[in-house]
Simulated assay, not measured.
Amino acid sequence: MKRRTRTMIFQVLALVLVAALLAGCGGQQIAGTEKPAEEEKVLNVFNWSEYMPQSVIDKFTAETGIKVNYSTYSSQEEMLAKLQAAPGSYDLCVASDYMVEVMTKQGLLEPLKLDKIPNFNNVDPLYRNPPYDPENKYTVPYMWGTVGIAINTDRVKRPVTSWQDLWDPAFAGKIVMLNDARYCIGATLKSLGYSCNETSPEALAKAKNKLQELIPKVKAFDSDSPKTLLLNGEAVIGLMWNGETALAQKENPAIKYIYPKEGAIRWQDNMAIPKGAKHPENAMKFMNFILRGDIGKEIAEAYPYASPNAETIKMLPAETRDNPASYAPEAELKKGEFLKDVGEATPEIERIWTEVKS
């Protein structure tokens, strides 16, 4: 009888203990089953200036409720410096080909989850898996294009076919150039018969001397809106982005884009998530939104660089697709080359640029 009583007492105590444990757990989830906290509805974007329509940003916010804080830079080096100085300040940045190389080597980018960016399937295979980011581990493409020469044919009557033509004394004081060391030094190297990525001391010394001849003849250095000087008549020739030239053509059809015979400098801009980003999920939602065909069309019509989005290309009018200022002919693409990370030569290139402009 006592044994049975003791057994009943233990059973009651066990039930009480279980009830107490359940009560103590309340609404808590069992360890390992917690749902990830939803990110706040904010996205901090860092991009080139004059490169994304406000209407696109507004549509993203309207569809998702995510507020976009949009900041701009004027060069890849400026972007890199700010990301290094303030980790976690931005959730999405736009980085050019060679800069992606630099940033991945420095561990400055977060890996992407492409399954959360299904519209990546819209990207033309030509612009996937680039050499600087095989398998698109860190980036998805935004836009692509070239750096070449723009002229006002109303005021430039002689043929322009070479990078060397920028040194023609007739253009002194009427030249606009991108405020960018890699593109300007790269074009100078190509005018001398070198690759735009050449880093030998001999080649860089020649490029420095040649640039020193040109700098006094340059009216202005402008990476934000170099087309402005062509349109207001202060410049008649320029070292220009292709899309800036296409924009200028809308206001003045006499503006023409030239692919130098030595080859243009190609580029591809890419969306990436900086290391330490506070809102990476929102960043991938934004990437997926940008890669929609209709959104790509809106961007390409506002800023007529070349779109890597196959669905967007189908939607664009023929006059846009066939404009060589936007979409380089295949033969010109074969002659062109991309900038690459030049590693230990980077400080020397920056020093040359600082000295020739001072």
Rank of each mutant, 00 (worst) to 15 (best):
L291H: 14
K206M: 10
K275V: 09
K278E: 15
A205N: 11
L231G: 01
A220I: 11
K206S: 07
E251K: 15
Q249M: 15
E198F: 11
I273G: 08
A272D: 01
E244F: 11
S200Y: 04
E234V: 00
P226T: 09
F286L: 14
L204T: 06
A207D: 05
Q268H: 01
K208P: 05
I265A: 03
N288I: 10
E198R: 13
K210C: 05
G238Y: 03
P260N: 12
A246Y: 02
L231I: 05
P280V: 14
K256A: 10
G276K: 15
R292H: 10
W267Q: 09
V218C: 01
E244R: 03
I265M: 15
L247Y: 07
T245D: 01
F286C: 11
I258R: 11
E202I: 03
K250Q: 13
F221H: 02
F286P: 10
M240W: 03
Q268V: 08
I290A: 10
P260A: 12
T245E: 02
A277H: 14
N288V: 07
L229Q: 10
P201W: 06
L229H: 12
N232E: 06
A254N: 08
I265P: 04
H279T: 15
L247G: 05
L214W: 10
P253R: 08
P280D: 14
A272G: 06
M287V: 11
D222Y: 01
N288H: 12
